[in-house]
């Protein structure tokens, strides 16, 4: 399976994603420079975390006009697998590949820590190796992860099973206290209608090795690899 890690000016988790795919998953991986216009040779594109263009105007607002984003949109429209992590998720929202937007965390501070996530749909390319209701321990690191969307779209996301991950407590209860950033409905990750585009605030690449304190992020990588094998 071949992964492409898209590099925008200001991305800073691209090397981490590359490392995990290369050294932990032992799959093919390339960096994809933001000026590239052809991404057809990849099976899965990763939009990594960071501060694209400094996130000065609004997170992801400028990155989404990078030449590569047209190619990403085209790739996604043909069913290509795209995962946006943290800033990558914000870019997908700005680009309209996923619905909604991000506000600042309600505490108004950057938060970097492990959180618990409940798998809300285990029948997607990204979670097929997880079980429904499984609790994952994966870190977040962001200032703007407070997800909002209009009520109508929220209802649709829920009905269509497109809410993939919600913040929860260690026991799997989705509670106010377990919500680190104020996100609507404790949403941590969502998919598009075709489930081939996935955006999430937590960093699965930071929870892919025992030595870093958790391997719960692996379930996401292993799911997408399994999906790709079966599809292929």
């Amino acid at each position: 399976m071949k992964f492409g890690v898209v590099v925008f000016p200001g991305s800073n988790c691209e090397a981490d994603c590359y490392y995990v795919v290369d050294k932990v998953l032992r799959e093919d991986v390339d960096y994809v420079w933001h000026r590239e216009t052809d991404v057809s040779s990849y099976d899965c594109l990763i939009l990594p975390g960071g501060f694209s263009y400094g996130d000065y105007l609004r997170c992801g607002a400028i990155a989404r006009f990078s030449p590569v984003m047209e190619a990403v949109a085209d790739f996604a429209s043909r069913g290509g697998l795209v995962i946006g992590i943290c800033n990558g998720f914000q870019i997908l929202l700005e680009a309209g590949l996923l619905p909604g937007a991000m506000l600042r965390n309600t505490c108004l501070r950057f938060i970097c820590r492990f959180v618990h996530l409940r798998v809300e749909n285990a029948d997607t390319p990204w979670t097929n190796r997880a079980s429904l209701g499984q609790v994952l321990r994966i870190p977040i690191a962001h200032n703007e992860g407070n997800y909002v969307v209009d009520p109508e779209t929220y209802r649709r996301l829920e009905e269509e099973g497109r809410i993939i991950l919600r913040y929860c407590d260690p026991e799997g209860e989705v509670t106010q206290e377990a919500n680190p950033n104020g996100a609507m409905g404790n949403i941590a990750g969502i998919c598009n209608e075709g489930f081939n585009v996935f955006g999430l605030m937590p960093h699965p690449e930071r929870a892919s090795e025992e030595i870093l304190g958790s391997t719960d992020g692996l379930v996401i990588w292993e799911s997408v690899m399994a999906y790709n094998r079966e599809k292929g």
Partner: peptide, 13 residues
């Protein structure tokens, strides 16, 4: 400005 009805954490603070 933040849309009416959209939470404004900075404003609230």
């Amino acid at each position: 400005t933040p849309k009416k009805g959209v939470l404004d954490p900075a404003g609230q603070a």
